[in-house]
Deep mutational scan, measured.
Amino acid sequence: MSIQHFRVALIPFFAAFCLPVFAHPETLVKVKDAEDQLGARVGYIELDLNSGKILESFRPEERFPMMSTFKVLLCGAVLSRVDAGQEQLGRRIHYSQNDLVEYSPVTEKHLTDGMTVRELCSAAITMSDNTAANLLLTTIGGPKELTAFLHNMGDHVTRLDRWEPELNEAIPNDERDTTMPAAMATTLRKLLTGELLTLASRQQLIDWMEADKVAGPLLRSALPAGWFIADKSGASERGSRGIIAALGPDGKPSRIVVIYTTGSQATMDERNRQIAEIGASLIKHW
């Protein structure tokens, strides 16, 4: 067993022997300050990975656009099909120029040879490739089937209704393509630590998230040396920005953090900075 597999395998073990964890309200002060700075709603939740206990939250049951954070859930659904023998990570999918949508930095380079399901999930999570996400959605039956998968997991909140890039419209009070911080955190925890996926698939999912290449300005920018993070960011219209992450010190994840914001007129750089500052406060008061 590799060191990485050993780390994931021990998560349920540590759950039975973990020391108590305590929240620090200073982080919530920073979350509220971020709302003021951005002139927008901010949703935040911090969940103990082992016990599932909510350590701190702000607007945990308000809806926010999922943006590209849905791609982790999508690849979780794909992996569940792999575990059930209904899909193969090595299966090659061919597509055409007509399938390409905006922001497809990986898939646009493989029009001649296609990409495997594994490569598409990697592109969707690590590079947030939109065409990769659409091709993967097709393999499971579309957005409604992803919503059904989540319902079967016990998540009756999170929903995907449209494809890339339309799902990023982020219209106020529109429940399409939205989640709540509490629902997303719970669902992510189930995918990473529960029995829904095999150990190999849980490890694959967290490996893809750990290799995320487009979330550098967010929580990763505040991460001390030696800390672990596996994450997925998202951005969409109407000043929306978000990130879902499993992180912790000593090279292993111990908490789930979900941050969403929407309705801001601030620049992308400012939205990134506010999320990074929330992360810095979280780490300082860990």
Results as ranks from 00 to 15, higher is better:
13 F>Y: 13
82 V>T: 08
207 D>H: 11
173 N>G: 15
169 E>Q: 14
133 A>R: 11
84 A>E: 15
183 A>I: 06
136 L>I: 06
108 E>G: 12
154 G>S: 03
206 I>M: 15
88 Q>L: 13
180 M>S: 15
44 Y>C: 00
283 I>M: 07
47 L>Q: 05
176 R>S: 07
186 T>Q: 13
89 L>S: 04
99 D>V: 11
226 G>P: 01
277 E>S: 07
166 E>G: 10
20 P>I: 01
84 A>G: 12
57 S>W: 10
86 Q>D: 11
202 R>C: 09
208 W>D: 02
107 T>G: 03
159 R>A: 02
172 P>Q: 07
39 G>T: 06
106 V>S: 06
31 V>L: 12
92 R>H: 12
74 L>P: 00
240 S>R: 01
155 D>I: 12
56 E>S: 07
180 M>N: 15
42 V>A: 03
74 L>R: 01
284 K>S: 12
111 L>G: 05
108 E>V: 13
166 E>K: 08
70 F>A: 06
44 Y>W: 01
128 S>N: 00
227 W>C: 01
197 L>V: 02
175 E>A: 12
102 E>V: 14
182 A>T: 12
240 S>D: 14
80 S>C: 10
3 I>R: 06
96 S>C: 08
12 P>T: 15
217 P>H: 09
119 E>G: 10
29 V>G: 14
17 F>S: 09
198 T>N: 12
265 Q>H: 14
2 S>V: 09
175 E>Q: 12
147 T>H: 03
201 S>F: 09
91 R>G: 02
53 K>G: 08
244 I>C: 03
11 I>M: 11
12 P>I: 15
149 F>R: 05
109 K>Q: 11
213 K>E: 10
175 E>S: 11
75 C>R: 00
139 T>L: 07
95 Y>F: 14
217 P>T: 07
223 L>F: 02
222 A>T: 13
110 H>V: 02
21 V>L: 06
164 E>G: 00
139 T>S: 15
86 Q>I: 13
184 M>G: 00
108 E>D: 11
219 L>A: 01
203 Q>H: 10
241 R>Q: 05
138 T>A: 15
174 D>K: 01
157 V>A: 14
39 G>S: 08
251 G>C: 07
222 A>K: 13
219 L>R: 01
207 D>V: 10
45 I>L: 12
57 S>D: 05
269 D>H: 10
106 V>C: 13
141 G>R: 08
186 T>A: 14
29 V>L: 13
77 A>D: 09
239 G>T: 05
275 I>F: 13
247 L>T: 14
